[in-house]
Structures are given as C-alpha cells and as structure tokens.
Design a protein around this nucleic acid. Structure first.
Length: 552
RNA sequence: UGGGCUAUAGCCAAGCGGUAAGGCAGCGGAUUUUGAUUCCGUCAUGCGAAGGUUCGAAUCCUUCUAGCCCAGCCA
C-alpha cells in the first residue's frame, strides 16, 4: 500500500519507537455501528491502518457499541464491507460489548476507591448542577454516599431494579473544573434496551468516556487516534485508565476532521437525508458515504490517494471537492475503457452514404493504455450526435457542427452539415450531412484540417442506456448567500442534484456488469449502477466529468 | 465573560533558528482524432497582526486578533 507523507502523528510514533517508549504500534478503527461510513471515516481508516502498516504494527476493527438505542447489525455489516473494500485487513475484530463484564468490574473498583458514586439526580437536575462554561458546577447531594451504599445501588442498577434515567454511576472528580468533562461525568446509565450483540444481558451501558479508554487499554492500543473534538476529553481518558488501574496506558492523539466543499459530513445529517428520502439510501451517489462514492464509481485507490494527499493536521479546514475529483480521474485514466455514448441524441443523416450498408470501424479501447486492445464500432447512414454539438447560429470559436461546417466523427469520417430539419415548433430535430470517404480514420488523410472531433453512435445498432448526472447535493454558496436563521441544511438541498437522461451507447456494451467503469468520450467517467441496471438497459452513474476549458 | 485547540497562496498542507516542499484550483504556451490527457512555464520578498530577542525568525519571547470545539444519562 502507498506510503503516506509525513505528519505530526507519524513523528510522534517514530519518536516513541526510537526512545523506547513503545516497542510496537497498535492502532484501532473504532466506529459506532449507528450509520454508514463516510469519507471522513475513510480518512481515519487510512491513518490508523496506514500508520500501523508503515511501522509493521497492527490495527483492530472495533465496534464501539455502547449505545444499543442507536446501533444495528445492518451498520456493522456495512462497516466491515466498506473497510475491506477500501483495501484494509484488520488484525482483530472486536466489540466494546466484548468487555462489558470487565468494564463493570472496573467500575466496582472505582466505587471501592471512592472515585465513583451512584447519583439519583434527574437528567435536568444534572444539567443544572453542572454549571456553565463560565460558572463552576455544584456537587450532587448524593455525591457522598458510602462505598457500601454505592456498591449496593450499582449492583441493583445492573439487576434491573431501576428505570431508565433514574440513576447513573458518576465519576467523582471535580465539579469546579474549567473542563466540563471533568465535572463528575456519567460513567454508566440505565437503559433497558436490547443490544444487537449482547441481547438483554445488560440494562446498564457504559458511556463513551468511560468505555473507550478501557477498550484501548484492554487491547493494548499504543496510539489511540481520534478527531479533535475529543481533545478536551483526554484528561478524562487518562483519568479512567489510571484510576481503573489498567496495566496498559494508551496515548490519545487527535487530528482534524475531514471536510469537503458542497456536501455534508456528519452521520446525523446523512441519516436525516436517508430517513427523510432526500436520497435513495446510504449508498446514493450524491452522498459522501463510502458506499455512495463506490456506487458513483470512485475506486478505493482514488479515495486513499485523496486522503493521503489532503494530509493530516490538527486544523479544521475544508478541502475543495475538485481535489477528490482529481484523484478519481487520475486513477480511472488508465483503467477505464473509453467508449462513446450520446446522452442527449440528435439524429444525423449522412445523405451520400449508401442506404442499408454498415461498415465496422476499428477503435482503440484506451489510447493511453494500448494493452487494452481494440474494439469495433458500426457506422452507417444514420447516427446520433450530442444535441449540444450542433448550433444553427454558433458564436465565434465554436468548433462543433453548424451549417456549412465540417468536423471529424471520432474513429470515422469528416462530415459536413448541409441542411437542418426542424419540427413545427422550430426545434432542430435532424441534421443532414455529407461525408468524405477519403477522410476515414486511420487512413492518414491530411488534405484538410477540422477544428472539432465529435463522438457519436450508429443509430441502427445503438443500445439504449440511461445516464444519471449529478450535481452537488448542497452548495456552500447557496447556504452562505442566504444566511437565514430558521433554516436547516435541508432547506438548501439542490433540487437539480440528479438529472436522468436517456441516450445511446455502442452495441459492444451489451454485457456490461454492475460497477464496470468507462470513460464516455468528452463526457467523463461513468459507473454501471448496481441498483437500476437491468438486462435490457444499462444505467450509468457519472462519477466525474472530464475537465473542460470550453465555455459558450 | 471559563477551558481546550488552530492560524503558512483561492483550498489542503510541509516546515521544528540558516533565508518558504508538494498536491488541488487558476493562468500562459506546445502537442492533440476527447475544448480531455501529456508536456513546458507561471502562481507567498511572504508565513493572522504588532512589537521584541538574534548576525540571521514562519520557527524563540510578549501582546493582540480571528476561527473551531466543549454545558448528552450520544459517540
């Protein structure tokens, strides 16, 4: 796998190894199975697995499944699939729920040490007692319960004697700490819920701040890498490891989240778009989910290269989506066969070409990768070209077809526009052209030059196909422009984010399979959609357009 | 008006006291049967601001400013 450029985390690990602070590297990717992975997770995956790989270490995939209310087996399955698809193999597959018994025992230890207590405050009261950003909190009246009483109460919490929300186990730290995370954080809550892994065995579940450090310590994680919003939690992380008397002391290091322009990148928002049917599932090609990018036609290689090039730092920036697009073009350039497809067809009749005759032309599959070989494409009297490749009254520097102009048909002949046929509404419905047999592609003809080369498809042999063209789901500039108070990101969903058009493709595309990738000449890279494609008609998702400096 | 963190080009990002890497985007030009690709050139006398230390500062010190995160029995 590719090596990553250096970054501050790599420097820390290197130094830890050199100074002997650590003798190996063990990382983990710890998703909560409450949604599908997005490209921000891909960043974390690349960092965790990539760093471990580079230092001959190990990486566990660990599901942080401490909240059964939000989690589901569907998500664990999709996460495993996505991690593997991205090209990584975990060393061990673990679940936080594997450690519930040990976590419970460590909590008992905390109680015995006088470092934790059972609190009867309601959630509302707890919030009031917590204080604010600028004012210290005050201690709960239950804070000074005896060890015996706490032990008894905690045992009864586990046994299910109390209702949801009625009691919590809290760490006894400092209600006046300027770091709110240290104002006696909750360690366990009562939640009578069925867990996707442990069923009904438990009715108390550990909180993230308590569970995560223990999970890391149990697994011998050396470097626990997470995003910067957990920076404030680090003192608590260390407190838990120390007070629970864990043998192994992992080090938490935080890096900045990945953000990309013109999209949303939070599981909450993505779930909302899915649940409220703004998109057709977690794998909708407009979403920055790993499965959505996959369906759109992104490759693991492109995603990895993008993440690595975007870098790792503590800053919170927004990467231009153009950068993501660059890396998929780069990867597909040599891999994807090139073919011709007409998305919005306009019929062209070549008046001096014999009726009923078809000739087969040779065409390279990928001129930049000759090993991919040749294909044959039919040519006859009637073809389709792209509607936008003809203008009756073109502006200057329009290289395409217009009355009297001659252009090349890719892999075929020069044609010259002789006549325009319109319907009653005055719309152009057909073009009549003549062709010059001497200009056949590959013949070495140099008599005349043309400025434009058009793609086309033979009308009688063409296969119908559907093309799905995407625009950003949400445009940053739309959101910024309006700046309204009572609006949510849902009010800015781009109504034109999906355009479906019916066109034609070459007959040799008859047997395309889901996820086959092609470059349609002058249009961009496309992926055969796995959900909508049928035996009768292929459906192509546009992964990304080609760059173009053309503007009308 | 508490605490934590971050400021290097339009965007991401190296840099760790010795004179500003790289990628994306952009802009020129060459080649081109994709207005693509490729190639070549260009793109911070400047590192959030102001002071200071030093022969020398993006790097050290001081002050200021801006942005992000935190008041779930979510992770």
């Amino acid at each position: 796998m590719e090596h990553q450029p250096s970054n501050f985390i790599r420097s820390i690990i290197k130094e830890d190894l050199e100074t002997g602070k650590r003798d190996q590297v063990i990382t983990r990717f710890p998703p909560e199975p409450n949604g599908y992975l997005h490209i921000g997770h891909a960043k974390s995956i690349v960092i965790n697995f990539g760093l471990a790989d580079d230092f001959n270490g190990k990486t566990n995939l660990r599901f942080d499944d401490t909240n059964p209310l939000k989690e589901d087996q569907e998500y664990v399955d999709s996460i495993k699939e996505d991690v593997q698809w991205l090209g990584y193999e975990w060393d061990e597959l673990r679940y936080a729920s594997d450690y519930f018994e040990e976590m419970y025992e460590r909590a008992v230890l905390l109680i015995k040490k006088g470092k934790a207590y059972v609190d009867d405050l309601t959630p509302e009261e707890m919030r009031e007692y917590r204080g604010t950003l600028t004012e210290p909190g005050k201690e709960s009246p239950y804070r000074s319960r005896s060890v015996e009483e706490n032990l008894d109460l905690f045992d009864r919490m586990r046994k299910g004697e109390f209702e949801n929300g009625s009691k919590v186990l809290r760490a006894k730290i400092d209600m006046a700490s300027p770091n709110l995370n240290l104002r006696d954080p909750a360690l366990y809550r009562v939640s009578h819920a069925t867990h996707h892994n442990t069923g009904d065995k438990w009715c108390i579940y550990p909180m993230y701040d308590y569970a995560h450090p223990l999970e890391d310590a149990i697994e011998g994680i050396t470097h626990s890498l997470c995003t910067t919003e957990f920076e404030d939690h680090r003192p608590l992380y260390n407190w838990v490891v120390e007070e629970c008397e864990m043998e192994h002391q992992p080090q938490q290091i935080e890096f900045g989240r990945l953000n990309i322009t013109n999209t949303v990148m939070s599981k909450r928002k993505l779930k909302q778009l899915v649940d409220e049917s703004y998109v057709d599932g977690w794998d909708d090609p407009r979403l920055p989910t790993v499965s959505g990018l996959r369906r759109k036609g992104y490759t693991p290689e492109a995603i990895r290269a993008f993440v690595q090039e975007a870098g790792v730092s503590k800053g919170s920036g927004v990467v231009d989506e153009a950068m993501l697009e660059h890396f998929v073009r780069e990867d597909l350039k040599m891999k994807a066969p090139r073919t011709m497809g007409v998305l919005k067809p306009l019929k062209v009749v070549i008046t001096n070409y014999p009726e009923g005759e078809t000739e087969w032309l040779d065409a390279e599959i990928n001129p930049e990768n000759p090993e991919m070989g040749m294909r044959q494409i039919p040519f006859s009297r009637e073809i389709y070209i792209e509607q936008e490749d003809f203008m009756e009254n073109p502006p200057k520097k329009y290289f395409r077809l217009f009355p009297g102009n001659e252009v090349r048909l890719k892999h075929a002949y020069f044609i010259k526009c002789e006549e325009v046929i319109k319907n009653e509404e005055g719309e152009v419905v057909e073009i009549r052209c003549t062709y010059d047999p001497e200009t056949k592609s590959g013949s070495g003809f140099t008599g005349r030059k043309v400025k434009g080369t058009l793609h086309w498809v033979d009308a009688t042999h063409a296969l119908p196909a559907e093309f799905r063209l995407y625009e950003p789901l949400i445009r940053d500039e739309d959101q910024k422009a309006e700046e309204a108070e009572d609006k949510t990101f849902l009010d800015y969903v781009n109504k034109n984010s999906l355009e479906v058009v019916q066109g034609f493709i070459e007959p040799n595309m008859k047997d395309v399979q889901s996820h086959d990738k092609f470059q349609f000449f002058r249009h961009g890279y496309f992926n055969v959609d796995p959900k909508h494609t049928t035996a009768e008609k292929a459906v192509f998702n546009r992964t990304v357009s080609l760059k173009s400096s053309f503007k009308l």
